[in-house]
Design a protein around this nucleic acid. Structure first.
Length: 547
RNA sequence: GCCCCCAUCGUCUAGUGGCCCAGGACAUCUGGUUCUCAGCCAGAGAACAGGGGUUCGACUCCCCUUGGGGGUACCA
C-alpha cells in the first residue's frame, strides 16, 4: 500500500455539528494525519429543503474550533455538481443500467403498507412498463425518478473496523433511486461519484451506513470505480435511555418539560401556543409525536414559556460544549475514546499523541454511551494543568461565544488573575458565573435574597454584626494583599471568638452578592480596597435599611 | 415483520488460549483537607449476559439463546 491515504468528512448542512459527526470527522482526520495523507471536506447538500448556508458556516466554525483542519482549499458542494451527476446518470440510462420510474411517494407508501400488513418484507419491484404507458405518464406530466438497476446477487465487502466480511444476500438487494424528482442526485449516487473523483481511499462513517455500502459498491462496479476501504464506526448512545445520541434529544427534553408544564399549570396546548406566539396546529403537531422537531427559534420561544434555560438542555452540539467552556483539545481526546483506545492504561493524550497512536485496528465494535461526567473530569484536569497563556486564550474564546457576559470587559491580565483564583474549575462557565460580579459596577451589584437572609440576618443578625465589625478592621488594613487581609481577618476572628466562616461568608455576600465566589481574600485583593469597602458599605446600608 | 451489527465493573475501556480468583479511568461509598463552590489527598466496593461445544486449559475460538443498537426513504 504505497498510495497516499485520502479521507474525507462529508456533513450534510442540516444543522450544526454534533458529537457523532465530530467523532467521525476526528477519526477520519486522525487516520489521514497518522499516515501523512489528506483530509478533505465536502458538503452534502443534495437535500434542498433541509440544507442551509448557516449550517455550513456553523459546521466549519465548529471544525475549526476543534482544530480539525482540512486540506482542500476549495470546498466541494454537491449542489454545484449537478451537471456532472446528470451526465453520468444519462450514461447509465443509455446503457440500460438505470431507468425512469414513475411511482408517486404515496403509491410507494401504499405498497410498503401492503407488504407490512401481509408480514412480507418490502422489496421494490421494477415495474414492467410498456412504451405506451411511459408515453402516457410523460404526456400526463408525471414526475419520474431515476433508479439504478441493482444487479441481483450476493454482495460482500470487508469492513476494517468490524474486522470481518459483511455479506448481504441477493434477495435483499433492490433498485434504489439515483435522481430525485427535483433533479438532485440522492446521497447514494453523489457520495459514490464524489468519493471516486476526489480519490478517497478510506471511508469512515457511522454504522447506520453499513448496509448502504452494498448499494455503493453496486454503483462503483457499474461506473468502473475502484472500491475504497470501508470502516463503520460504532454508534454513540445516550447514557439515559441508550438510544442513538442526536440533535433530537434537545427537542425531546423541551417537549417533556412542555408536557410537565401543561400538567402543573393546567394549561392546554392552545395556551402554550398563544404564550409562545406560535401557531396552535404547529404546537399540537409537535407535542403529539416524539419523532417531530421544532426549529431552533421555535424551541427558544417554548423554552421561555415553560421556564427552561439553555443550560438545562443536554449538550449535543459541539457548539454547546464550546459555549459551556470545555476545551477543544479535551473534546477531541474524549471523543477519540468513544470507540477507540490506544491500549493499556493510556487515556489522556495530546492531539499530537493521538495522531501518533491512532490505528484502525484499535477501533472498537461496540456502541458507546456518552458519559458527561467523565468528560467533565477530563476538562477539570486540563484546566488545572494547562499553561496560563492557554487558559487565557480559551477564556477569551469562551467569552466570544457568550457576548452577554460582563467579563468581556476584562483585560488579559485580569482574566489571568480570575483564572488563578478559580483554581479547581471544571468548566469555564463556572468561572464566569462565580466571578462575573467582579466586572459589575459596585452600585449595580445585586444581593441574592436567600444569601442575605441566611448569612446576614439569620441568628439575630450575627453575620450582619460581624460584617460591620470587620469593616472597621478592613478599613485599617494598609497592605491590601491577599496574605495581609487574611492575617488581619483571622486575627479579628480570634479576638472575637468566631470561626473564619462566620466572618468570611458575610464579607462574601457583601462583595459578591451571593454565597459562592472565589476565595474571599483573593477576591478582595482583586477588587482593591476602595471598591471592596464601597461594596461592604453599600451592603450594610441596604440590609440595615430593609428592616 | 425482515436484514445487519454488537455484548468485560453503573459508564468508557485494557485484555488477542495459560501472565487474569480480570487492570485503568469516570461515577459511587468511607475517611481527611478547606472561608463558600469547586478542587485536592487516602481507602473501599463493583464486571467476563446465559447455555452448549472445541481444548490439557477459555474473558479470549465456534454454535444457540437472551439482551442492546442500527437499517428497512425521492434524509443523509
Amino acid at each position: 500500500m504505497s498510495s497516499k491515504v485520502v479521507t474525507r468528512f462529508a456533513p450534510s448542512p442540516t444543522g450544526y455539528l454534533h458529537v457523532g459527526g465530530a467523532r467521525t470527522a476526528l477519526f477520519s482526520w486522525l487516520l489521514a494525519r497518522h499516515f501523512g495523507g489528506e483530509f478533505l471536506l465536502r458538503i452534502e447538500d443534495t437535500d434542498l429543503a433541509r440544507s442551509t448556508e448557516a449550517s455550513v458556516t456553523g459546521v466549519l466554525e465548529d471544525l475549526r474550533w476543534l482544530g480539525l483542519n482540512w486540506d482542500n482549499a476549495e470546498l466541494v458542494y454537491q449542489s454545484k455538481r449537478v451537471a456532472i451527476y446528470d451526465r453520468l446518470i444519462e450514461g447509465l440510462l443509455s446503457r440500460g443500467m438505470a431507468y425512469k420510474a414513475y411511482e408517486t411517494p404515496e403509491e410507494l407508501e401504499g405498497q410498503r403498507r401492503i407488504a407490512e400488513r401481509a408480514k412480507r418484507p418490502y422489496i421494490y419491484s421494477r415495474p414492467k412498463l410498456s412504451e405506451e404507458q411511459v408515453r402516457k405518464f410523460e404526456a400526463d406530466g408525471r414526475k419520474s425518478v431515476v433508479r439504478f438497476v441493482m444487479p441481483v446477487k450476493e454482495y460482500r465487502f470487508t469492513d476494517v473496523v468490524l474486522g470481518k466480511e459483511i455479506v448481504l444476500a441477493a434477495n435483499q438487494v433492490q433498485d434504489f433511486v439515483l435522481r430525485k424528482t427535483d433533479g438532485m442526485p440522492t446521497y447514494h449516487f453523489a457520495v459514490v461519484v464524489d468519493d471516486a473523483e476526489m480519490g478517497i481511499t478510506h471511508i469512515l462513517r457511522g454504522q447506520e451506513h453499513l448496509l448502504n455500502t452494498v448499494n455503493h459498491i453496486g454503483l462503483q462496479d457499474a461506473l468502473g470505480y475502484a472500491r475504497p476501504i470501508y470502516g463503520h464506526l460504532p454508534v454513540i448512545l445516550n447514557t439515559e435511555d441508550g438510544s442513538k445520541m442526536g440533535k433530537r434529544d434537545r427537542d425531546k427534553k423541551i417537549r417533556h418539560h412542555a408536557h410537565l408544564w401543561m400538567k402543573s399549570s393546567k394549561m392546554a396546548a392552545a395556551d402554550l401556543a398563544r404564550l409562545a406566539e406560535l401557531g396552535m396546529e404547529r404546537v399540537e403537531w409537535w407535542l403529539a409525536d416524539t419523532g417531530r422537531q421544532l426549529e431552533g427559534s421555535e424551541q427558544k420561544k417554548i423554552m421561555g414559556v415553560v421556564g427552561l434555560k439553555e443550560t438545562d438542555l443536554p449538550e449535543i452540539l459541539i457548539h454547546d460544549f464550546r459555549a459551556n467552556g470545555y476545551l477543544p483539545e479535551v473534546m477531541l481526546n474524549f471523543l477519540s475514546l468513544l470507540g477507540w483506545s490506544p491500549g493499556g492504561d493510556r487515556e489522556q493524550m495530546s492531539t499530537l499523541e493521538m495522531i501518533e497512536l491512532f490505528s484502525l485496528e484499535r477501533i472498537g465494535q461496540a456502541n458507546a454511551k456518552f458519559n458527561r461526567e467523565k468528560l467533565l473530569a477530563f476538562n477539570t484536569e486540563a484546566c488545572a494543568t494547562s499553561p496560563e497563556m492557554r487558559m487565557v486564550a480559551v477564556m477569551r474564546d469562551f467569552l466570544s461565544v457568550n457576548p452577554q457576559s460582563p467579563m468581556n470587559a476584562a483585560s488579559d491580565e485580569e482574566l489571568r488573575a480570575v483564572l488563578k483564583m478559580n483554581a479547581g474549575m471544571r468548566i469555564l462557565r463556572e468561572v464566569e458565573e462565580k466571578s462575573r460580579f467582579l466586572f459589575v459596577a459596585d452600585e449595580k451589584l445585586e444581593y441574592q435574597p436567600e444569601a442575605v437572609e441566611k448569612v446576614l440576618r439569620k441568628n439575630e443578625r450575627q453575620g450582619y454584626i460581624a460584617l460591620k465589625n470587620v469593616r472597621d478592621i478592613l478599613a485599617g488594613v494598609a497592605d491590601w494583599s491577599g496574605a495581609a487581609l487574611e492575617e488581619a481577618v483571622k486575627k479579628y476572628c480570634e479576638t472575637a471568638g468566631l470561626g473564619l466562616g462566620k466572618v468570611a461568608q458575610p464579607i462574601r455576600v457583601a462583595v459578591s452578592g451571593s454565597m459562592v465566589s472565589p476565595p474571599i481574600f483573593e477576591t478582595l485583593a482583586f477588587l482593591g480596597k476602595e471598591r471592596s469597602l464601597r461594596r461592604i458599605e453599600r451592603c450594610i446600608e441596604v440590609v440595615g435599611h430593609a428592616d
